[in-house]
Design a protein around this nucleic acid. Structure first.
Length: 597
RNA sequence: GCCUCGGUAGCUCAAUUGGAUAGAGCAACGGCCUUCUAAGCCGUAGGUUAUGGGUUCGAGUCCCGUCCGGGGUACCA
């Protein structure tokens, strides 16, 4: 039950009664009362002053007077300029707490058999190099979004399309053939994805060298890029692969497997997973079939060089290539095939692609193409377009060695967490395993929160020089508060205090307690908003706000040493509910909450 | 060139979608541990919201211009 919705109805009725007109749809605007003013909920009265034919102050005063007299929710009011600040009866806030305490899953919508199914694609790596910071943002957003949708009552299928095929992996394969000396992850002790990535770098160095040499001989840049022996060799591998050459396919399988094994470790460390994995090598042929069908049905057209194109000028766009002149497929072809397979495999109500904003155009086109091909769900696909992660020096560039490696970053953060934890010496009673688990929890909490608290649509800056904070508006701050509450609750349990949710009529709330209750009451709205806006940041900011509120309360009022048993009981309920919300909320960000730290 | 997204405190980010005196954290400075975990709490300082106009009771938010930056505009993905 939502206080604003209830009030909206009462205020509409009040306006009709007091001023004799019906307010326009959506004109009853309610907001949280700012902390510097008295009151809980504020009505903006400007939209009504014209019809009320009174000054803003007078309009507000008359409404406030009426509501205080006639509403069971409003116990007092005050007017500041055109703002009517309403004080909600104390019983309401107590009821909110009791509700949250009793409910098994406060603030979330449970999934039922009738729930809509949303498929969320995220991660979708190339298999020629290890995951980096950019992938981390993608993975964290995708995982978090999945959790948020689940908590908004959707069935969720998490999916990953692995780009296992193409010129990029052939480059690593060629380099391995040239300079690999039979090296494997086992023989070198190097994680598979990193090993393959090393060869990709080797290829690039060789390729660059060849281009330079050719240019010195007077070959123009563009031609040099095209005829360099290494790129020719890589292309030859791609041709052999497409022709199903046994040796090539074997090497491809072997090296991809190294990468998958490496990715598995990274995903596990990051705490993300998938329900269904698609491989481009299996979907691209379906895409090709679809494009050829489109050609036969006159939806697409062919040029003299036999390349296949779509005419998107009716949609205000350009011409788009779908098959190369040599018949091989492009990125778009593959995505058409993947989409088709997915809709065959699952009863998808909504398809979400978690892909960076550099591909906005691609997904705009994909939606149109699917629509042209006759899939009614095509235009409904949702591109969850997020911003890039930049370094203080600008964009990350793998060639310049400025990429922040995912494995390294997580390991470094864990070390920082360990050092700090050992300095503070708070985990002394724990076994080494428990302490290690906690340090990892804190490190990942810091990293995940740092990334997810930012509006996903915006670019963000990451400075690898300054390690991520553990104080202030951070994951560990919230984790720490959770651990402190758990500690109090453990002690309460040990002493066998009974906690109840029935309070006498004269039970008074402290100011900090009421602030906390108001914030608790907002949790369901935050979950809903995060779902409709596809925004983990909404959850992160909410959790921070709640945590801050709790810490202020915790600082000012003792829980276990409170002499009044009713107050003590009330505060324990309050603490229990905060723990519950933080676990649910941070869970939606993929962040675990330690009981000690 | 064209399309598109953005510019908020020294730094990293908010701002209930057009509402009150633009808020947090970090960094700086000053307080608070004999008391439920100080990874905490309180305070000081920090802003012409890139810039010029417009719309209205009200603009960081909407419209137009200018400047600066990102991305896209590939027979790359």
């Amino acid at each position: 039950m939502n206080i604003e919705k209830l009030l909206q109805g009462q205020i509409t009725a009040a306006i009709e009664k007091v001023f004799g007109f019906t307010p326009a749809e959506g004109s009853v605007q309610l907001q949280q009362t700012r902390r510097e003013f008295e009151g809980d909920i504020t009505l903006v009265v400007f939209p009504f002053v014209k019809n009320a034919r009174k000054s803003p102050e007078e309009t507000a005063r008359l409404l406030g007077e009426y509501l205080t007299q006639n509403s069971d929710l409003v116990e007092d009011y005050n007017v500041v300029k055109g703002f009517l600040n309403l004080t909600i009866v104390r019983e309401w806030w107590i009821k909110v707490l009791a509700n949250a305490f009793r409910q098994d899953k406060f603030g979330v919508t449970e999934v039922t058999d009738d729930s809509n199914l949303v498929m969320i694609e995220y991660s979708s790596p190339n298999t020629n190099k290890p995951l980096h910071l950019g992938h981390i943002r993608n993975n964290l957003l995708g995982y978090s979004l999945s959790e948020i949708m689940k908590n908004n009552g959707y069935k969720v299928v998490k999916t990953n399309i692995v780009n296992d095929r193409g010129i990029h992996i052939c480059k690593s394969m060629y380099a391995w053939q040239q300079w690999g000396e039979g090296k494997t992850p086992e023989s070198t002790g190097i994680k598979g994805d990193h090993l393959v990535g090393d060869f990709y770098v080797m290829f690039d160095q060789q390729y660059k060298k060849e281009i330079t040499e050719l240019k010195e001989k007077g070959v123009p840049q563009e031609e040099a890029e095209n005829i360099a022996p290494s790129i020719q060799a890589a292309r030859e591998l791609l041709r052999k692969w497409e022709a199903n050459d046994a040796e090539t396919v074997n090497l491809w399988k072997t090296m991809n497997q190294w990468v998958y094994d490496g990715f598995d470790v990274t995903y596990k460390e990051m705490g993300v997973d998938f329900d269904k994995i698609y491989y481009e090598s299996e979907t691209y042929l379906h895409g090709k079939d679809e494009v050829l069908r489109g050609l036969k049905e006159g939806i697409f057209y062919q040029k003299d060089d036999s390349s296949v194109w779509a005419d998107l000028t009716p949609a205000g766009l350009d011409q788009k290539l779908l098959l190369r002149s040599d018949g091989t497929s492009v990125y778009m072809t593959q995505d058409i095939g993947t989409a088709q397979m997915r809709f065959k495999d699952y009863p998808i109500d909504k398809m979400v692609y978690v892909v960076g904003n550099e591909q906005n155009y691609h997904f705009q086109v994909l939606a149109i193409l699917l629509d042209m091909l006759g899939y009614e769900w095509g235009k409904d696909l949702y591109h969850f377009s997020y911003g890039m992660v930049e370094l203080p020096s600008g964009k990350m560039k793998s060639r310049e060695g400025t990429v922040v490696d995912a494995d390294d970053l997580m390991a470094e953060m864990t070390e920082v967490a360990r050092k700090m934890g050992e300095e503070l010496g708070k985990l002394e009673g724990l076994t080494k395993e428990e302490a290690d688990r906690t340090y990892k929890m804190i490190a990942l909490g810091a990293l995940k929160y740092f990334i997810l608290k930012v509006d996903p649509k915006k670019n963000m800056t990451f400075n690898p020089e300054e390690s991520i904070d553990f104080n202030g508006n951070t994951g560990p701050f919230i984790q720490y508060t959770h651990a402190r509450i758990q500690s109090v609750l453990r002690k309460a349990e040990d002493t066998g205090i009974s906690i109840g949710i029935d309070y006498p009529n004269d039970f008074e709330l402290e100011a900090k307690e009421k602030e906390l209750l108001k914030t608790i009451a907002l949790f369901p709205d935050a979950v809903t908003q995060a779902g409709t806006e596809y925004s983990p940041a909404v959850i992160a900011n909410y959790c921070y706000e709640l945590t801050k509120q709790f810490n202020q309360f915790y600082h000012d009022h003792s829980i276990l040493n409170e002499s009044d048993p009713v107050k003590k009981s009330f505060r324990l309920v309050l603490s229990t509910v905060v723990v519950k919300i933080l676990r649910t909320g941070m869970g939606m960000l993929g962040i675990e909450m330690p009981d000690r730290m």
